[in-house]
Structures are given as C-alpha cells and as structure tokens.
Amino acid sequence: MKVIKKINNNVAICVDNNNHELIAFGKGIGFPQMPYELTDLNKIDRTYYGVNQNYLGLLDEIPEDIFEISAKIVDYAKGKIMNEVNSNITFTLADHINFAIQRYKKNMVIKMPFSYDMQHLYETEMRIGEVAVKFINKVLEIHLSKDEAVGIALHFINSENMKTVKNGEINENQVISDITSIIEKEFHIEISKKGFNYSRFVSHMQYLLKRKEKDISIISENEKMFEMMKTEYQETYDCVLEIKRYIEEKLGWNPSNEELLYLMLHVNRLCSREDCNR
C-alpha cells in the first residue's frame, strides 16, 4: 500500500495495490515523508473507500476517540441493517456525536421524542440509535439523553441507499439549495459548496426534512435557549424567519420554535466558518 498524502499523524490518503484510493487510520502512518510504501499493513487499524473529500476536514476538527466510537457504532449497524449504507456514514455520524457532546456540555437540551412512526417503521434503526447512545455514555462517562437515539437513527435512515424522488415527496436537494440561497442573500455571503462545512449543513437539513416527512417533532425543554438565541443572534434569527416563510409556502409546514432553534444553531454554525466569504 502506498501512502500519498498526510491528513494528520494517524490518518492518511493511500492507494492500494489495485490503484484504488482510500483513507487509512493507523498510529503514526502520517509521520514519514510522503509518498512512501507501507509494507507493514498491521499498522493500519481501519480503511475507508469512497469517502467524500469534503469530509476530510472533519479529521482535524473531531477528536480521534469520537471517530473510533462512530466506527464501532457503524460496524454494529452494518450487522443489523439489510440495505447498504453510504460510505461517508462514519464521518457524518462522528460529527453528529461530537456536536451532541458539545451541546450536552453546554446544557443545551433539544428533545426529540420517540414517535410511533419511528418506532414501528424504523425499528432496526431506532434500536441501533438506542444501543449507540448507551455505548457513547459508557465509553465517555457522560449522560446523553436517550432521545439522541432518534438523531442517530435518522443518520442511518438517510445513509441507506438513496431512492428516487416520487410524486408528492419532498425534493430535498432543491429545498436545501433554496434555503442556502436565502442564507447567502440574508448574510451577503457566498457559501463554498465544496467544503465539509457545507456538506455537514446539508446533512443537518436532510435530518430536519426527514423529521418533517415522518412527523417527528422536536420538543425543546429549554424555551429560554430559544429566547436567548433570538436576542444574541438577531441576524441569524431574521434569516431563519425568511427560511420559515419559504418552508411554509413551499412545504405547507409551519415550523415550531423548537425547529427554528434547530435551524438557528446550524445556520449560525454554517455562517461562522471561514469558507463563507462576505
């Protein structure tokens, strides 16, 4: 195996003997001068093929132990899910877990109740989410709410093979593109569509639309957080109100304050990044 580009000390882009590019995890594989031939494959802990290049930036942002937790959850899920899951799931799930932990540390509780639809239409994915939350809590010695299982379940639902949009179903790509245009207009910025920051935002918008599709409401236990965000991030709130008007007109859906809070968190996160140029 040839190591061709360092991501960090323990992660690198490699090429296998069939000339297929992959991401490899292994202690110290990023140290030597690039490129080099790695003859001792025992140094490789994990490999990933077909990873979206936009997600590579996450490797410098998310702690390695979170990636390891995500990888173990995905390994468990692959033994339970019949459909093939997207190759990027370990990366997007690691980001989701990391953000959930950040919210937990800041005591930002966004409650997503278990719904009848989720429990019965996606029983396997919900079970994976429940097992994942218990595993995260045990390994990190924290106390994420069991409701986080819904968000993790939605990650796997979204990552299973994409189906063609049918009549009457939401065209997610168009809706997310329209929402992005609203954000760019309101903030007078140009958002790079090539970076992992935008890819992450798209994922979170997909989860919001999936919850709408399955009638899964977000119920926040902290109304004060919503009021605080409105005051502290007035520009973000104004932008989210424009998105709300679009959603009402396009989808016939009136988002709750809790869903607006979710939007504010992720719009603010998107626009605070350096790959949004004013």
Rank of each mutant, 00 (worst) to 15 (best):
K224Y: 11
Q102N: 10
K43D: 08
P35W: 04
N88L: 01
E125G: 01
E148G: 02
Y262G: 02
I89N: 03
S115H: 00
M34D: 09
R211V: 00
E130F: 04
Y233R: 06
R269V: 03
E221Q: 11
E242W: 08
K27E: 14
E232D: 13
E37P: 02
K214W: 10
G252F: 09
K224F: 13
E148L: 09
N171Y: 08
H266N: 15
E221R: 09
E259F: 05
G252P: 09
V150T: 12
F99M: 09
K166T: 10
M162P: 13
L121A: 14
T92I: 13
Y246D: 08
E21F: 06
F99T: 11
D215F: 06
S115A: 01
N173T: 13
Y233P: 01
C271I: 13
R46N: 10
I142V: 10
E258R: 10
Q102A: 09
S70C: 02
S115N: 00
L59V: 03
M1T: 03
D75T: 01
F31Q: 10
D215G: 10
G26R: 02
D117P: 00
M126P: 01
T231S: 11
N171L: 07
K250Q: 15
S115F: 00
M1N: 07
E64T: 01
K193S: 08
K250L: 04
R278A: 14
E21Y: 11
K43H: 08
K230Q: 12
N277S: 10
V85H: 04
I101E: 04
A149C: 05
T164P: 02
M82S: 11
L209H: 11
K80M: 08
E148Y: 12
G26V: 00
D60E: 11
L22W: 00
K212E: 09
N257S: 05
K72E: 15
I110S: 09
I69P: 05
V165Y: 10
N17F: 07
K138L: 10
L154A: 05
N19F: 14
V175G: 11
K244D: 15
E258V: 02
H20E: 14
E248I: 05
